[in-house]
Amino acid sequence: MTAQTDLNPTPHIPCGCQQVAVYGTLRRGGSNDIRRWQPEVHWLGHCRLPGQLYDFGPYPGLVLDGSYKVLAEVYALTPDLERELDRVEEIWPVDIGEYAKHIVDVELLPLDGGPPQPTQVMIYVAQPAHLQGRAMIDADDWLEWWAKQAR
Rank of each mutant, 00 (worst) to 15 (best):
P93E: 06
I13L: 08
T119Y: 00
S31M: 02
Q120I: 00
V88I: 14
V121H: 01
W142F: 12
T25S: 08
E82P: 12
E98N: 10
F56Q: 06
R36F: 08
A100M: 11
E144C: 09
E40P: 01
Y99L: 03
W146C: 03
A129D: 11
P58N: 09
L71C: 10
L53A: 09
W145M: 05
V74H: 07
A21T: 15
Y54I: 09
G57M: 05
Q19P: 01
P79S: 07
Q52Y: 03
G24F: 06
T10E: 09
T119C: 11
L77D: 00
L49W: 15
L143H: 11
P60Y: 09
E107V: 07
H12W: 05
V41H: 13
G30H: 06
I34R: 02
V94M: 13
W145I: 03
T25E: 04
Y59I: 04
I103M: 13
P128D: 11
A21H: 04
I34E: 00
H42Y: 04
E144F: 13
P93G: 12
K101T: 06
T78W: 06
G61Y: 12
G16P: 14
E82M: 09
I137Q: 03
I13N: 03
D112W: 01
G97V: 14
E98Q: 15
V63H: 15
G51L: 12
T78D: 07
R36Y: 10
G24M: 04
G45A: 02
E98W: 04
E89C: 11
E82Q: 14
H130M: 02
L71V: 15
D140E: 15
D80K: 02
R48A: 13
W146L: 04
L26H: 03
P39M: 01
L77S: 01
D80R: 00
C47L: 05
Y54Q: 09
F56N: 13
R87N: 14
Q38S: 05
L53Y: 15
P50I: 12
E144L: 05
V104A: 11
V20L: 03
Y23A: 08
G133L: 08
C17R: 04
G30P: 00
R87E: 06
D140P: 09
R87H: 06
P115G: 03
V125C: 03
A139W: 06
P110K: 03
R48D: 11
L85E: 00
Y23F: 15
V94N: 03
G51Y: 11
E89K: 12
I91T: 13
D105A: 15
D95Y: 13
Q117K: 13
A100C: 09
L143P: 05
L49Q: 15
S31L: 07
L64I: 15
D141R: 08
Y23M: 04
G51T: 12
G51A: 10
A139G: 07
G57V: 04
W37Y: 04
V63Q: 12
H130P: 02
R28I: 07
R134T: 07
I96R: 15
G51C: 11
L62H: 09
P58D: 13
V74K: 01
K101W: 01
F56P: 08
P11L: 08
A76E: 13
D105N: 08
Q38Y: 15
M136N: 11
F56R: 09
P110D: 10
R83V: 04
E40K: 03
I96L: 08
P11F: 05
G114L: 13
K101A: 13
H102E: 14
G133V: 05
G45N: 00
P79F: 08
Y99D: 07
L81V: 01
L81Y: 01
H12L: 14
